[in-house]
């Protein structure tokens, strides 16, 4: 008689079936990614040329093949940069408040909670808010700046969270060593805490920028549409690259759809590049690299 009994077939089958399902789930998640990237690359390469990158849509007829996204690329770069300029100081100081001054009091817990909630604001609502406030209530015109305002609302919570996390990783010993030398708290934060957390914070900001660079909805009601180049984000409608893709994709002719794919390819390249830079910064200063 054997002492060691085999486990029942049904238990074995269940274990195997679940294993199969788990592998299948992973495959099911990767298939759309591969499909999206493949289609964007194969359809986008057709028009991915110098003309696309250096020309606007000004004077391009409804059925014409030519034209490009220069005006949209410029717009997106400026809008995203401005959004960073607005949201990084606010986000960073909020994180400093939460970590260094908040003492986990009521205000700090309220801010912390609403930062989390803010992460979930639909991007279209951020656009509507800026439209209602900046354009309807204050009476300014559509501009790249208005788009940047909307994007900055989406960026802020991400910046706060990543900066907060990095600041909390700074060991308290460092702060105490600085206090022991008689350095004031704010100088300790500026001279000791922030430099220690610097690369982590920059990585977080880059990821936040990458996230908003692909946002379309908030641009719709803030920068409006234009086919021509506008180098000044503070006056008049300015295009954005995601908006360009949306606009071209919604047009009924193939030449426009081709431009939409190429725009999508350009957009993905920009977003992936930002992501890559963020990861490189993180890697550059990571302890794993043995500095």
């Amino acid at each position: 008689m054997t002492t060691i009994q085999h486990i029942s077939t049904s238990r074995r089958i269940k274990d195997r079936v679940v294993q199969g399902l788990v592998y299948l789930a992973f495959a099911a998640a990767v298939v759309p990614l591969v499909s999206v990237l493949w289609l964007v690359i194969s359809n986008g390469l057709a028009r991915f040329d110098l003309e696309f990158l250096t020309h606007s849509m000004n004077g391009i007829g409804a059925r014409d093949a030519h034209g490009g996204a220069y005006h949209a690329i410029i717009g997106t770069l400026q809008q995203v940069l401005l959004a960073g300029v607005i949201s990084v100081p606010i986000g960073l100081f909020t994180a400093i408040y939460l970590v260094e001054y908040g003492n986990n009091g009521r205000l700090s817990r309220a801010i912390s909670f609403f930062v989390d909630v803010m992460t979930g604001i639909p991007s279209v609502v951020a656009g509507l808010f800026v439209f209602a406030f900046w354009i309807l209530f204050l009476g300014f015109e559509y501009s790249g700046w208005a788009g940047a305002l909307a994007l900055s609302i989406l960026m802020m919570p991400t910046v706060v969270r990543s900066a907060e996390e990095m600041l909390r990783l700074v060991p308290n010993d460092l702060r105490e060593a600085s206090y022991a030398l008689g350095v004031a708290k704010w100088r300790t934060i500026v001279k000791v805490v922030l430099p220690t957390a610097f690369t982590g914070i920059v990585t977080g900001i880059m990821l936040a920028v990458a996230r908003v660079a692909g946002e379309t909805a908030p641009l719709l009601m803030t920068v409006f549409f234009t086919n021509s180049i506008n180098h000044d984000p503070f006056s008049g409608p300015q295009m954005g690259l995601p908006l360009f893709v949306f606009d071209q994709a919604a047009r009924p002719n193939d030449t426009a759809v081709d431009r939409a794919w190429t725009g999508a390819l350009t957009l993905i390249l920009i977003v992936m590049l930002l992501n890559l830079v963020a990861r490189l910064i993180a890697w550059w200063r990571s302890p794993a690299r043995g500095r």
Partner: peptide
């Protein structure tokens, strides 16, 4: 990380993919 990449694809690209594919 590959799965996280899914989140990096802009919404408008998914829309385009949805309509075309």
């Amino acid at each position: 990380y590959l799965i996280d990449l899914l989140a990096a694809v802009p919404s408008v690209v998914y829309g385009l993919w949805g309509v075309a594919f």
